[in-house]
Amino acid sequence: MSTLTALSSLAAETSTSGGEAAQFWILAPIAVAGGLGTVLMRRAVYSALCLAGTMVILALFYLANGAYFLGVVQIVVYTGAVMMLFLFVLMLVGVSAADSLKETLKGQRLITAGFGLGLGILLIAGIGQASVGSFTGLAEANAQGNVQGLASLLFTRYMVAFEVTGVLLTVAAVGATMLTHREKIERSKSQREQSEERVKDGTQVPPLPAPGVYARHNAVDIPGLLPDGTPSPLTVSATLQERGQVREVHHEAMGSLAALEQRTADHQNRPGSVSGALGPGARPERESNRGESGSTRTTDATGTAGDDGDSDGAEEAGK
């Protein structure tokens, strides 16, 4: 960090030095890449991380441009606080909410491309048309130190705006609190009531079955197998199913079972087939509601459970 600061402060003082140019040409592509990553990454967490990277690089540019205070604030407030807030909310909303990049609106991509290109060209043209000239440099303005210079402006010319922003922040804090606050309007159910309700609704009354524990596999991402050899969706966390991170071992189990049946049949000289006995239709349907209130991912899991186990696993792995 200190070397970076030293580098940038050097760049700020010698405004047209080759050092700054080198720094720019190295960091700028990374910043652009970060921006593109933000927009194009499928998972929101990656987007957030890309954005954080871009922000850090922008902080370096601020430093290079003599805005020491803003550079630090950019890192502390933006990268440190705001981006972390984003991540928190992402976690709250659920990391599983993977966002497919498939466009659903007809022509939206085309329009975006057109407008984006147009806007970019216009901005570049505007910059080109303006007589930008060269840097005056902030040596004079920062003579008493950047923070002192900012402060003397902020508390004199921009006093009112500063106060108003203070009010704005207060209002934002109160507003956010109010928005996310949920008033409890009915008494929470006691344990007895909950259990009685579960029995009445016919949902899963006993604890959920554990994930599969096998000789070679012993992990939460492996579903337990039902007596007929098919995997039970109840045994794996819904989040893992949503993410497609469920490892399935029942192919092998089914295979060995089928082989055993075959051998037995061969031995006893009578025809028989596992597939006939253990077809998808023969598998008993199960309610997979775990009794966790308000979890829709379990409903999705039910949908998955209804599908054929083999194709399900393949599809999820494909994603």
Partner: peptide, 26 residues
């Protein structure tokens, strides 16, 4: 080093951001 470089970078990032707003559903 000219200010134009920074401004071009700024314009580029701005456009990328705008496209992101239009493209992403999350």
């Amino acid at each position: 080093m000219s200010p134009e470089n920074y401004l071009h970078l700024s314009a580029l990032l701005f456009t990328i951001g705008a496209c992101g707003v239009l493209l992403r559903r999350n």
